[in-house]
Nucleic acid binder design. Structure first.
Lengths: 251, 251
DNA sequence: CGCAAGATTGATAAAGATCAAGCCGGGTGG
DNA sequence: CCACCCGGCTTGATCTTTATCAATCTTGCG
């Protein structure tokens, strides 16, 4: 399937820097393969060399690493608009981690040359640097969480972050969003066992901080969750266009 | 103090991509302020907007975040040749973390415009992307460690990584290097208390995996430490020039 | 209807935090 | 020149969080 990139991608990039007409034209000229990928499927494995950049248009994916004992650490959740492997692909290096879908996804494969063409335009290059900066910042935040916070607080922080990131791409309905993950998936990101993740979620529910049913996650008391988890959105480096999404959150 | 950048910087960048004469000329044309900074001094604090890029030429520094309860998480150690705040500075964003010296350092302040000039040259831009990629990869590795490994294994892994990174810049003498950090500094990176870090180091010493005295860290049995910590250097994306440093390590 | 994946519960064990001292070395002021 | 002081290292005892192991329950779905 061949098609333009649709609006999610453009909207995502415009969040970071104002684009000129010519920038937009270059963006629109990218022809990429769009495809549906079912849940729990590798997009690219550690050690492989990506042919192009993968971009999530819909669904839920992740970056992960496997350990020798079979355990999996999820190092990032990828939501619509997120690049799976931008930096590695620009350099055509070998992947130092894998990426995989967690839920059914719509994925775009952008050829490497197309990305290199984007990089020639300063405003677009800036947007890509920005995406990379946010990527790193989210990772630093995860390090802080894993190194210092209890499992309960880590989980709360993650759910807070996901709400905000999904709001940015218009996928959070007020204070609720679809979270098509198993407790084991969350556990692999938060760095606990699935058993413990279950107890953590129960605790958060009983404190009225979250209200999940099925695959829907609701945050009835965002300010409460924010305070509990010590969340501050500064590290997401949201653009001016997104400040409204943050209005509810101090900092 | 004004001066050229010296060889560390150039050597670092050449690790990533071959540079042409013109690239080198542009590099040499950068005039930057070089200064000595004493130990335990902030280079830039969270929330500030960097005027330019800081580069460590000598010494030992870190990226860190402070939590509301006063705890500090070190998210990266910065060794000679490392940028402190490249991405944030390129975008003149607010810092989402601080950087500080841990030992006395020689630091270079490169004006933002100089970096933007580098970015116009494809080979140099590529080198900067590469540095950023490695930054992210190291961070992912830290997430994997914090999420899955025991404190002992995390510490071993970190010491393995530092040996390799210091070898790359010629600061490791065979299997030993200067590590001018307190146990508390290490603890803040590994995500344990200083007390526990002390016991961890004792355990590693008694297993013959490390042999530190004073500020010198020696690795008498690198293969042993590698195996114990599950270290694999792939995520450092070392250039062909550095393969020799890795010879001792499988994978 | 029956299964398999996911969620839940309980009991026990291990890793690491916390609290509280004590120790050691080197720099400093009297 | 020495006493003392302070930062960093070390040790011990106890407490908390989370892992581990082992079932059991629930539910969407073929």
């Amino acid at each position: 399937m061949e098609a333009g990139l649709g609006s999610v991608f453009t909207r995502k990039l415009e969040q970071f820097a104002p684009l000129g007409d010519e920038d937009r034209r270059v963006l629109d000229s990218i022809v990429a393969r769009v495809r549906q990928v079912r849940a729990r499927t590798d997009l690219i494995r550690e050690g492989e060399r990506p042919k192009g950049v993968h971009l999530v248009l819909a669904g839920f994916a992740c970056r992960y690493k496997l350990l020798s004992d079979g355990r999996r650490q999820i190092t990032a959740f990828l939501v619509p608009g997120d690049f799976c492997d931008l930096h590695v692909s620009i350099l055509s290096e070998k992947m130092d981690h894998g990426t995989a879908t967690l839920a059914p996804c719509t994925v775009v494969d952008i050829p490497r040359e197309a990305i290199l063409r984007l990089l020639e335009r300063p405003a677009l290059a800036r947007a890509l640097w920005w995406a990379t900066l946010v990527d790193g910042a989210v990772l630093r935040q995860q390090v802080v969480s894993l190194g210092n916070r209890s499992a309960e607080v880590r989980a709360a922080h993650l759910l807070c972050e996901l709400l905000l990131r999904l709001r940015v791409v218009g996928l959070a309905d007020g204070d609720a969003y679809e979270l098509p993950l198993t407790q084991a998936d969350l556990a692999d990101a938060v760095g606990v066992t699935a058993v413990h993740m279950n107890r953590v979620l129960q605790a958060l529910r009983s404190q009225g901080l979250i209200a999940s049913e099925g695959k829907t996650m609701a945050i009835p008391d965002l300010e409460g969750l924010r305070a509990f988890s010590g969340f501050s959105p500064n590290y997401l480096h949201l653009g001016p266009g997104q400040r409204a999404s943050v209005a509810a959150l101090a900092g």
